[in-house]
Design a protein around this nucleic acid. Sequence first.
DNA 1: GCGCACTACGTCAACGTTGACTCAGGAGGA
DNA 2: TCCTCCTGAGTCAACGTTGACGTAGTGCGC
Lengths: 344, 344
Amino acid sequence: MDSGAGRRPEPTMRDVAALARVSAKTVSRVINDQPGVGPEAIERVRAAARTLGYRPNLTASSLRRSDKRSATIGVLFEDLSNPFDSALLRAVEDRARQSGVLVLAGSSEDDPSLQRELLASLASRRVDGMVVMAVGGHQDALQQERERGTPMVLVDRPPTFGETDSVTTTNRESAREAVVQLAELGHRDIAFLGDRQTLWTSHERYTGYLEGLAHSGLKLRKDLVCTDLKGPDLAEQATAALLDLPDPPTALFTAQNLVTVGAMRVLRSRRMHHRIAQIGFDDFPLADMLEPGITVVRQDVPGLGRKAADLIFARIENHHLPPSHAVIPATLIRRGSGEIPPES
Amino acid sequence: MDSGAGRRPEPTMRDVAALARVSAKTVSRVINDQPGVGPEAIERVRAAARTLGYRPNLTASSLRRSDKRSATIGVLFEDLSNPFDSALLRAVEDRARQSGVLVLAGSSEDDPSLQRELLASLASRRVDGMVVMAVGGHQDALQQERERGTPMVLVDRPPTFGETDSVTTTNRESAREAVVQLAELGHRDIAFLGDRQTLWTSHERYTGYLEGLAHSGLKLRKDLVCTDLKGPDLAEQATAALLDLPDPPTALFTAQNLVTVGAMRVLRSRRMHHRIAQIGFDDFPLADMLEPGITVVRQDVPGLGRKAADLIFARIENHHLPPSHAVIPATLIRRGSGEIPPES
DNA sequence: GCGCACTACGTCAACGTTGACTCAGGAGGA
DNA sequence: TCCTCCTGAGTCAACGTTGACGTAGTGCGC
């Protein structure tokens, strides 16, 4: 074993060339399957590379190559341990692998300065492109990066600046659909519980909620709207407060995953989960195993990821494509909780 | 905007040097905070770098530097969209960020040839180290990589070869603890449902099951042992078959996440979830919201990830450290399903 | 006034690879 | 026979950066 020795120096093309008694350039040709090398020279080079355990140095290669490709893309999401983000990452990774590209991944934690830092880190490594879930607020850093010509695709949230590809979900339309379904069951007091309004998705879903009410001829009750619920604790408090109203809602539209779970928790602890309707945005595991099953709007996460990857690779291939804004449809999955009619 | 223009060439040190009227070396010194540059030269270089939007090329830098560090590590897990894997990735990423290191991530899908390919891909990019969840079976590719001197830490599964760091969970001990708890409640017919036996973790948990039985003076009933349940479908079939036995089990030890869920599903559909005890290995979201809550052995996933990252960075710093094998304790979380006594 | 140390730079080559070019030798045609 | 073309190589420099080393100028002690 390696005990005692430090990291062995990697053999270089020159080492292989010396052993095969050819020039380094010939080794380069063999490694890159370029023509102009005779069969027995090819064999000598291959044998030498094998015995030395030679592996090409991609960093040196991409430094010298004319296209400067690093065969690496950057992925900058909010939190890689979040199931949504990791499913997205996996979809991007799968598509990248087909092109022999590896993925540098980072979590921005919705922190602009961290995003800026990671962006610079990716840029220093000269990635071929970036797939970014932009943090809320100003996107100056992203815009600057894009304006330098770095291929970039925004996922889940659209760019606030021009000429940049994006992939999003039908947030507004699907939220609206959920609310309309509740209204058609006879609900007239439908509460909205959502995440931070600075997040584009949250805001879109709220707009969809408003549209759904309007479409169904319902009046907006401002006391039934709870926004900026960051995390399950705030969601639980908000749900409890709603239920304690003199005129409580008969249905909840919970516009984010953790909010959905927080609300569920409160409904269950009050044994009201069979009497109050609930539709959540974004599916989650075991939603079908609860009593009742939780009706949700399911986003096509792998679809989002695949599309994002397709776009980034298309953009890398051709910088001059017109920007593309893909919208991936979400689906309403009826499991019971969203099909509870109002009482009396 | 960038419309029409291809990717703008990145400014180099020479560009900055020309603008600041100094040599490239001086720019290098300023960028790396090295001494030997006067204050006003520093200012000129800084200003020039700002106006040009200069960002150092880390690939060129790591090519030339003596230590050859790329400030990048590789992470090779089974499936990055799996919550266990992604939580692990996140923990590694957090630790890496502290050292200014980025993470190249890949999913091996438990496929030896894919793992081999990704390993080569990482090696070509000259990562400083690798954190690997080894695929089952032969680990030759990993061993070869390790023998070349690449710093490597195996997570969740130990190496079958020497001189390599690893981090694992108390699979056997915790499985044993779970089974002993069931036995102490009076259960005598405790079934084992587990994933593929080729996986080290599955095998360990099975061994723990056997130890638990032995410790409690129970005899092994081979007809209650179901292994190699890959995926929830097989788990459901196996559970159904167990319950259809003339002498069915009164408690289930489900040794893997998807198996746990599959078994739960069958118990619920047969309305037996309040009569048959169940303890699962590995926690999952909403386990506490079901009726009854699911008792599980919870692994300390962030702890595993942190430790793995600590080890890889220690190894990168010092190749000569003796190999370290960390074992992170798991905890039994009692929620109800594992505290159901046998009937009559 | 001379040597010496010290500071603030600059010069050069090299990291591992590849694009552009050169070149020897043989085949083939006029 | 001579010229051209093609094949299978090799040579050289450069990608962007930094380690090793060189050097001009200043300050200071004796």
